[in-house]
Amino acid sequence: MADGKRLIGPAGAVLLRRCADRTGLTDPLAGVLPSSTAAGWRDRAGVLVHLAIAIVLGAANLSEAEQLQLHHRPLFGIAASDSTARSMLAVLDGATLAKIAKARAKVRRQVWSLLHLRPGGFPWLTVAGKRLTGWIVIDLDATIITSASNLAADLDAWLRLLALHDIDGLANAEPDTMRFRLYHLSARLAEHARRRWLRIERTWPWATSFTTCWQQLTALPAIT
């Protein structure tokens, strides 16, 4: 929580978490990462997803990721410490990374299916009057937390394609612009009728885009 008045920031984390949930990202990761029933054990898939979210929000190291997640404790529960994240990353050997890549590919196919269901169909590109169909996927990454940063790139791209594709100024915005306009928006946490609400300042220029993004992600067909 950003202060003692239930102010949450960066509130864009709820959009990225919603995107992860609606695209079915967590379950495939849980199937390839270590698990335990020991008391105090943190679900490694959740740790990896929230680390990816922190990277999208601008975290450059594990300490910054932990600090960002502390702001979201009222929304997502107790944040994983940087030592927990480091322990999770330490077990990612070549075989596990290959399984994570396979899980990402599975979710990516699910996202493509969701895009086909969107009004207007799949967003094929047109270059010099020629429509480019088919996909060649290339992972380009230069950050120090490779597995999590690849997931971060996935989440940011999927959120744009699924929920921001028709919003000028966001659909093709640079990462820093996305953080300034959408992800770093502050919101106030309120509770009513046993439900929690994020109240967004209406005067913020991108407030409507924020709520539209949430609504479009929520309206996505459930992954089966």
Rank of each mutant, 00 (worst) to 15 (best):
Ala222Cys: 10
Thr212Pro: 03
Arg18Tyr: 05
Glu66Thr: 01
Thr146Ile: 08
Ser113Arg: 15
Arg199Asn: 09
Val111Lys: 11
Gln216Met: 03
Trp214Asn: 07
Pro123Arg: 10
Leu151Cys: 05
Gly4Phe: 06
Ala190Asn: 08
Ile100Ala: 03
Arg104Cys: 01
Leu115Gln: 10
Leu68Trp: 01
His50Asp: 15
Asn172Ala: 13
Thr26Met: 11
Asp154His: 09
Glu191Pro: 02
Val32Lys: 05
Arg22Ile: 04
Cys19Met: 10
Ala103Cys: 05
Ala85Val: 12
Val32Leu: 03
Thr126Arg: 15
Gly40Phe: 09
Gln67Thr: 10
Leu7Ser: 14
Thr143Asn: 05
Phe122Glu: 04
Asp21Ser: 05
Gly46Cys: 05
Arg202Thr: 15
Pro123Tyr: 00
Ala79Gly: 08
Thr37Lys: 14
Ala157Met: 10
Cys213Thr: 15
Gln216Leu: 07
Gly9Ser: 14
Gly129Asn: 04
Leu89Glu: 02
Gln67His: 11
Ile167Ala: 03
Pro205Cys: 09
Thr203Arg: 14
Leu29Ala: 09
Arg17Ser: 12
Ala2Pro: 01
Gly46Asn: 12
Trp41Met: 04
Gly121His: 08
Phe122Ile: 03
Ala30Ile: 02
Lys130Leu: 11
Gly134Ser: 08
Ile223Ala: 12
Ala157Phe: 01
Ile55Leu: 03
Arg86Thr: 12
Thr212Gln: 13
Ala153Lys: 09
Ala142Phe: 03
Arg195Ala: 13
Asp176Asn: 14
Ala171Lys: 14
Ala90Phe: 03
Ile223Leu: 06
Pro175Gln: 10
Gly4Asp: 08
Arg194Ala: 13
Lys102Thr: 15
Leu15Cys: 10
Thr84Tyr: 01
Thr96Glu: 01
Trp204Cys: 11
Gly129Lys: 11
Leu57Gly: 00
Leu68Ile: 11
Pro119Cys: 04
Thr146Trp: 01
Thr203Phe: 02
Leu51Asp: 00
Ala39Cys: 09
Pro28Phe: 01
Gly120Trp: 07
Glu174Tyr: 12
Trp206Ile: 02
Ala193Tyr: 06
Pro10Ser: 07
Ala52Lys: 04
Thr96Asn: 01
Thr203Val: 11
Leu182Phe: 06
Arg17Ala: 15
Ser36Thr: 13
Leu159Gly: 03
Gly46Ile: 02
